[in-house]
């Protein structure tokens, strides 16, 4: 897995999962799921937005338990292939500093038809937000990062 630069790892045939610390190249993520047998191809980008709940955000910072996050992303990606009958799926999450307007996460899915590709991309994003050990911090200026640990979130790992 490439952690320090862009997406340098050669995609596996059914896609790949990666954590990166540089800008995500959407074309590379989409290319990793293209296949002659797939008629539906979905690419989702989650980008850093400029306002959250009426407060201006200058940038986002992401922290992670890297080994557990990478393993969880890959497990989710493979589960999505089996659960939705996908041809391939690829997931990339950026860590560190993410300027407003740039992608923090990219999910690509492909399948024989569009319905399973759309459904799988939505499922993957929901599960990534629910269970991958990655944390978002909002830089609202003033030199302090507001780390997000939602009160409503279940304890990670499904523990008691």
């Amino acid at each position: 897995m490439e952690r320090s630069g862009g997406i340098a790892a050669a995609p596996a045939r059914q896609g790949f999962a990666a954590l990166v610390r540089a800008a995500i190249d959407p074309a590379t993520v989409l290319a990793a799921v293209r296949d002659a047998s797939a008629g539906g191809n979905v690419l989702f980008l989650g980008t850093a937005r400029s306002m959250t709940a009426g407060v201006a955000t200058r940038a986002l910072e992401y922290d992670a338990h890297e080994s557990l996050a990478a393993a969880t992303l890959d497990a989710l990606r493979q589960t999505a292939i089996a659960r939705f009958g996908l041809t391939a799926s690829a997931v990339v999450h950026r860590l560190g500093h993410v300027p407003v307007g740039e992608a923090a996460v990219a999910v690509a899915t492909s399948g024989p038809h569009r319905a399973e590709a759309f459904a799988a991309a939505e499922w993957l994003m929901a599960e990534i937000k629910r269970q991958v050990p990655i944390w978002k911090g909002e830089d609202r200026g003033g030199g302090r990062i507001e780390w997000q640990h939602p009160e409503s979130a279940p304890r990670p790992g499904g523990g008691p």
Partner: peptide
């Protein structure tokens, strides 16, 4: 997380374990 897996409260933690505390997540 102990040695790369989520642990239950009753699980043992050896002296050489790789331990991490995982607060509520907010990725994506």
């Amino acid at each position: 997380a102990v040695d790369g897996r989520y642990a239950a409260d009753g699980d043992p933690v050896g002296s050489g374990a790789d331990v991490a505390i995982i607060p509520p997540v907010s990725g994506g």
